[in-house]
Nucleic acid binder design. Sequence first.
DNA 1: TATCCACAGGAAATCAGGGTGT
DNA 2: ACACCCTGATTTCCTGTGGATA
Length: 435
Amino acid sequence: MLTNDKEYEKFSIDRFYKNYLNGPRLFKSRDALEPSYIPEDLPHRDNEIEQIASKTACALRGETPSNFLCYGMTGTGKTATIRFVSQKLANYASDCKPWWIYINCSIVSTPYRILAHIYNTIVKKDEIPPTGLPKDVIFKKLLGLLDNKVDNSICFLVLDEIDMIADKKNGNEILYDLTRLNENLDFCRTCLIGISNKLNFKENLDPRVISSLGEDHITFLTYDAKELGDILNERAKIAFYDDIIKEGVIPLCAALAAKEHGDARKALQLLRKAGEIAERTQNKHITGDHVKKAQDELERDHTIDYIKGMPLQAQVVLMSIYLISRFRQNKLTISGDVYEVHGELTSKIPGLRSLTRRRISDYINELCLAGIITAQKKSVGFHGNTKIIKLVVETKVLEGIFKESDKLRSFLNYKPIMIQNNKVRINKDVFRKLN
DNA sequence: TATCCACAGGAAATCAGGGTGT
DNA sequence: ACACCCTGATTTCCTGTGGATA
């Protein structure tokens, strides 16, 4: 937004809020469409619920359940099912209720932090600092705590996205430590439940860990469009007032999400976003158009959030790619050029230093993995190896993000010296051939 | 056919910045 | 003050790649 438009913006916000308050109300309970919501009934997961219930039921009699793993793609209800079973189990536990500690390994990703997280969750405060203590000290403290505070009870440790730590060198170490917790405990008993999106994640595990963690597993199959439709219908009844959703909306959300490996989370997101768009545009009903708009917005929002969340250095790498493809006539962007332009930019941005080629190479791979660019490895014979890089994200979206960045805004129209000088790293004929 | 280029990318080391206990 | 710990980012060192070229 331009600065001289501030008055208009303020007026517009006031009007927006007034309209919003006077406009139609569609949501009865928005929370019902959140991934964290645990419904009364989980459609099409009876089999999985039964398996988890039978594996954990012995905790009700004070016995220790075996460790096990849950496999399945994102949005197949792994976490929701476990939370669902844990709630039910708690209802039937009489004297000593089981403890459930959830650890999302994509956020709590180091051995130290996992131990600290378990400890801090039990004592309900941040007693263990985020860093500083030796790991074995925390391990001993945790053992003492488990035996004293969680005595005679079962403590379920749910490691969500366990694959995030399993492929790290030290991941084996923490998983091994956790699997042998019981050997060092006198009164408390622990049960490890791993949740993974990847079936092959065990390949990187130590055989000792596999033997105590991976023998038993439950596979969550993906939902088909009909099943997704059932889930959406259940949730929509809770989330929206009656007769808000037009016919065909739920099947459309279900079909779109079914295309993405039957991701229920995505289906719920789509429906929620469609509802928000309908509400924002003062509509009394949600239509198929709102769903299509929702899909576009979700995709864009995800990319924008990802880029904004990247470290500044990664943003500079992305800006280098943007500038080369914008100012070079044939738009050809190769890794060597990105390195050079990145160096140019960092020399002009205070507080930022240039990086090595190796590091830039990693950033290019990360951008590629995130779907922001494509990078195709190409050998140009005598002229060595390189990567042909292309932007996937619309340039308008990128420009919007760069405009908002204090450090990058001024480079939006910067023509790299390398391009001003028409510098070509590789032989002109080969260069032409690559196009 | 050996050589060579300009990288890719794995593994280990290093550094800075956060912390600890004594 | 000091030795030590943990983490994430980055550097250093290294081997591999593959097609044009001499």
